[in-house]
Amino acid sequence: MDATITLHVDGEEHRLTVDTRTGLLDALRDRLGETSPKKGCDHGQCGACTVLVEGRRILSCLALAVSHDGARVTTAAGLAPRGDLHPVARAFVDRDALQCGYCTPGQVCSAVGVLDEAARGWPSLVTDESGDDPGEGAPVPLDREEIRERMSGNLCRCGAYTHIVDAVESVGSAGAGGEAAR
């Protein structure tokens, strides 16, 4: 069964007819020719398909396209104007935080989401919540342990993890976090 939907991908509006069964990831890859979100597992187990929807990082493989009619989707290709690199992407290049590159756009999108979430004061499992008022919402400093925990939904089989953490740490400490996702 088909449905006609609108997707705003990296600032561009697309009107398309999809099978109700079509996942957002497949709509992006098969229908719109977007190569940035990758299919590594198709079941929410690897993070390669991570994109930002309305600024929040999600797994596009576990989203149905029909349910995202009207959504604004940002892929790693759309984080910066063509020809430029987003600070997070630049840091990945600088630190050689990639090898085969297949998980990389997902890692980059996830890192952008991490920086935003930490800037909003969202805790992670390893955030010290023993202070006076854990709910006050102050930004969470992103040390390496925080970055590791928050990035754990993005597998990298090449084992570039330490370099990815270097990259995210360098951007986090440069304070480019909060604005990155918006």
């Binding site: 977007e34 979100p37 690199l85 990945f92 290049v93 590159g101 990389t104 980059v108």
Partner: peptide
């Protein structure tokens, strides 16, 4: 630097 790095971090490769 890895020559194709920019294409990989954006997902265009």
């Amino acid at each position: 630097e890895r020559l194709e790095a920019a294409d990989k971090v954006t997902g265009r490769a």
